[in-house]
Amino acid sequence: DEDSERELEKLRKNNASKEEIKEVLKRLGFSEDEAKKLAEKAG
């Protein structure tokens, strides 16, 4: 959803580590696997 998109955008701009991105995604309700895949894509 839009909030998670914004959250990811912010992380990308701040050069967050894949680990940080994954944690945020998991907080947003993604499964471990989904979060890992998305973090890879974002990283």
Rank of each mutant, 00 (worst) to 15 (best):
D1L: 13
D1G: 11
D1V: 12
D1R: 14
E2R: 12
E2N: 11
E2Q: 12
E2D: 11
E2F: 14
D3I: 13
D3A: 13
D3K: 11
S4I: 15
S4Y: 15
S4Q: 10
E5K: 13
E5H: 12
E5G: 07
R6I: 08
R6T: 09
R6A: 10
R6K: 11
R6G: 07
R6E: 06
E7H: 08
E7D: 05
L8G: 01
L8F: 06
L8E: 01
L8N: 01
L8Q: 02
E9H: 09
E9K: 11
E9I: 11
E9M: 06
E9W: 02
E9P: 05
K10A: 09
K10Q: 09
L11V: 03
L11P: 01
L11M: 05
R12M: 10
R12K: 07
R12V: 10
R12C: 15
R12G: 02
K13S: 09
K13R: 12
K13W: 08
N14E: 08
N14L: 13
N14T: 09
N14Y: 09
N15H: 12
N15A: 07
N15L: 09
A16E: 02
A16V: 05
A16P: 02
S17P: 04
S17G: 05
S17I: 04
K18S: 10
K18Y: 14
K18W: 15
K18N: 08
K18V: 14
K18H: 08
K18F: 15
E19S: 06
E20A: 09
E20T: 08
E20M: 11
E20D: 07
E20R: 08
I21N: 00
K22I: 15
K22F: 15
E23P: 00
E23N: 09
E23A: 10
V24K: 06
V24G: 03
V24P: 00
V24I: 10
V24S: 08
L25A: 02
L25K: 00
L25M: 05
L25I: 01
L25R: 01
K26M: 15
K26A: 05
K26S: 05
K26G: 04
R27E: 03
R27D: 02
R27S: 08
L28M: 12
L28D: 00
L28K: 02
L28R: 05
G29M: 00
G29A: 00
G29E: 01
G29D: 00
F30C: 07
F30H: 02
F30K: 02
F30W: 09
F30D: 01
S31L: 04
S31Y: 02
S31K: 03
S31R: 03
S31F: 02
E32L: 02
E32M: 01
E32F: 02
D33E: 13
D33L: 07
D33Q: 09
D33F: 07
D33I: 08
E34L: 08
E34S: 03
E34N: 04
A35K: 00
A35C: 09
A35Y: 05
K36H: 12
K36L: 14
K36S: 14
K36E: 15
K36R: 13
K37S: 11
K37T: 10
K37A: 12
K37P: 03
L38Q: 04
L38V: 06
L38E: 04
L38C: 14
L38M: 11
A39K: 01
A39E: 02
E40M: 07
E40G: 07
E40W: 07
E40N: 07
K41T: 11
K41M: 13
A42D: 10
A42L: 15
A42I: 15
G43P: 10
G43L: 13
G43R: 08
G43M: 13
